[in-house]
Amino acid sequence: CCDADLYKQPRGLEDPEALARETVFSVSEIEALYELFKKISSAVIDDGLINKEEFQLALFKTNKKESLFADRVFDLFDTKHNGILDFEEFACALSIFHPNSPIDDKIEFSFQLYDLKQQGFIERQEVKQMVVATLTESGMNLSDDVIESIIDKTFEEADTKHDGKIDKEEWRNLVLRHPSLLKNMTLQYLKDITTTFPSFVFHSQVDDT
């Protein structure tokens, strides 16, 4: 009469307190975030894990969209490099996007995001690839000359060592001069996560006072 699985905690939420210690989230916020995770991870296969298709579906509301950046973000979230996101990976990555997270974590994440080939620097060809991808996905059309001049100007400012690439130190200096470049590294939603997903209280395991 006893199905032990029925009494197990859902996969990925075995220890919300430990996850709260690892991230900037409180235990209640971790539990509320898990409500979001459950929604996204059950969209295609209800297995308690987010695959790339489910991630794209949540981002674009369609799984048809190919996006260089959605792929890149997914790969950075996927710290276990197994092609799927468990709740721990999801919570740890989103923690960086919390308004209270250290700016250095946001700078590091954004650098890795744009360092497409993971060589430790952002090269001109990568910047061009990302500019073209952004223009294509938004249906904007700029001539190659205009794109090249935007990249020239960017490297004139960012590449202070004049070696044709942007290293981590140069990236840091650039974003500190232009904080708007980190705008998408902060999600205000994460501050209100417990009010966005109030149903977490029905599954809460702890008294988070």
């Binding site: 949540a58 981002l59 938004s138």
Partner: peptide, 25 residues
């Protein structure tokens, strides 16, 4: 005037980088 724009400002407009969309799931 697009030429006045930093390439990374342009890139940051990508929808794929707008993770706020995850919260409309």
């Amino acid at each position: 005037q697009p030429v006045a724009m930093n390439a990374f400002e342009l890139i940051s407009l990508s929808k794929g980088l707008n993770l706020g969309n995850l919260f409309d799931a």
